[in-house]
Design a protein around this nucleic acid. Structure first.
Lengths: 206, 206, 206, 206
DNA sequence: AAATAAACGAGACGGTACGTCAGGTCTTGAA
DNA sequence: TTCAAGACCTGACGTACCGTCTCGTTTATTT
């Protein structure tokens, strides 16, 4: 997560258990208190750890919460469900399920908000959360192209642009429905969304 | 903004100028400091107002920022640009321009994050920000239906569902690109997005 | 109490009832809350009066409390009980009874404390509280001298010095016992005190 | 002053220097500002200490000022001056000199006033100020009894009563003259006072 | 009767201090 | 060198009172 240095042999070694305990405590605090009422002192107490231990590993609340939330997205997978529509529906439902959890709800938008003024935080979010999702989109598109369900782009720049567009449309719609509109992204909604998205991507532009 | 009650004739009336000064000061502080470093004491000082005056009118930082940001969306309009595509591109560009402003960037996601644990705040955001945008979407769709560019829905429930879907897709994509992906929603992107969206909405479902 | 000017004929006259209500409310608040938690807003409310009315008559908390407490000492009297000892015991008991009341306890020492840094307040206290008590002492001494129980001083300066000394010894002992030592100045104590005092004043200095 | 507990071995120990700095700053603030304008934030700043450090050690303004003023009385001593009259005059002059200092003037009566409604504060004042003075009185009396200048009481209860009476008369007279009457307790006054007091205590009751 | 003028209630206003809380750092002794 | 504990400095919080002000209203006296 941090301190990648394999050196540092002398002195008492850092407790490996502490990291996991702290992240778990962070998520628990997010569920109970939400972002704004979460305090690092409380997280340390919950984790059975001193505040100094926590600060030795993370720079502050933002970085800690990014790491704690990022782990939630580890479970995102893209099994081959046989068709592009089924793949999209599957992954969107997974994504919606994660976003519906209170620790994600509370924490994710908050760190995104903070990241608007902090480039390092933005990079950290991108690296540990956004790109992970983005990779799924690209992988799904490649699979659909192998299946012949989506056309192959000739221009690599055009390919990148389209990939980004798809990603923003998918993630944006789910996030907006869940967090802004405050509705559930259930199966019915996901089917409707997928239908419009795929029609838009595959219909002849005429 | 608050206390619409026409009662309360007695006592010194509240200064109307103070409201405007406070909201303007809030936006200025958002630009300079961002959400997390904005303090109500500082806003009061900037507005030339006592902290108590501020607390007499707003319950806290969240409510104040919602009102301050909401005013930014007052300029959203939907002039008839002749075609559905032109209308969509026009309004999305306007929306993107507002979101690109630092006072919106800083404040909007933060209050949305807070609103995940505060129903009253959620209602305030919906009332003063979200529904205003939603109305534009509905109006645009109605205009397109009058033009014959979009089909009329028979079922009103189906119509509402579709309206919500379109809204979440439009707002979500722009917000996600601007705030999460961290890219600009420029004309080229808007054209590409509009193409996919409208194809998805108008192409025969096969 | 204030505004001694007999002029000011035009306009609505000040309510005489308000003064009395305010002073009574002040004493009630002293009893319930004590000096430090007494607020002028609360006094105004108790008196059924606006804060402005209160401030039109008194400069602040100190002045108000001096006037409110001063009225308590109106009941001090010096009836002729036949002997100096009886006179002293009588007036000391009266004085102790007033000091034992919570409104006096709370307010008196507080304004004295404030007066150490405010000459105007000191003058006000002297004028409306201290001199009233002092006059009793002088009157009692004169009576005792008429009776032949105390010697007549030849030197008027010496007479003044002795008068002040007696006053400080009497008032000081009662106040100290009541407020600092925190004991009751009951009949037994008063008898003991009077005995020592009068012996000290009348015994041959030899 | 507080936390006499020898426990609490873990964690960073409290700074001993901070205590002294805070009490000195409190006295300085009393001199400059007086009781009512003394603020704990200002004291903390003067002491070069955070407000929280101050609140960690004292419950509030009252307790702090009691401790700050109590230290002034540390210098009270009762050297053997050869006779009871000389002993009394000496200690009364010392006491008057302390009371004449602005930090004592401002603070002492104020905390006494507060203590009328706060038993814990009353106990604190008694423990750290009043009993210290009382002990001097008792010691002086015992010395005079050894010298044969004062009679030995047979009844211990009577002895206690007389001790209290003497103490209230001495302290009360000095305090009243200094703080209420607003005059200086100079040598001349002290001589006059001592004469009356000792005559009262030693003359045959006739 | 009308005009004038001050006092009145209500309550908003700019301030100041309150006592608390969280952030992030530092200091101790033990592991 | 890390750890738990907890004291430390900093700075914002939201509240309470202060004493002033601005309203519309009431109650006198003066025309």
């Amino acid at each position: 997560m941090q301190s990648r240095t394999p050196a540092a042999r002398t002195g008492r070694p850092r407790s490996a258990a502490a990291d996991a305990a702290i992240l778990a405590a962070t998520r628990a605090a997010l569920v109970e208190l939400g972002w704004s009422k979460l305090t690092l002192g409380d997280v340390a107490t919950r984790a059975g750890v001193a505040k100094t231990t926590l600060y030795r590993r993370w720079a502050g609340k933002n970085e800690l919460v990014v790491d704690a939330v990022a782990e939630l997205f580890d479970e995102l997978e893209l099994p081959d469900r046989g068709s592009l529509a089924a793949d999209v529906e599957g992954v969107v439902l997974q994504f919606a399920a994660i976003l519906a959890r209170p620790e994600a709800k509370s924490g994710l938008m908050a760190v995104v908000a903070e990241s608007t003024r902090d480039a390092a935080l933005r990079a950290r979010i991108r690296g540990s959360i956004v790109e992970r999702q983005m990779r799924l989109v690209l992988e799904g598109r490649a699979r659909a192209q192998r299946r012949g369900e989506l056309a192959l782009e000739g221009d690599p720049a055009e390919a990148a642009r389209t990939g980004e567009l798809i990603f923003d449309m998918v993630a944006g719609a789910v996030v907006h429905r869940t967090l802004v509109s405050g509705n559930q992204a259930d199966e019915e909604w996901v089917r409707g969304f997928t239908r419009v998205l795929l029609l838009g991507l595959t219909a002849p532009s005429a």
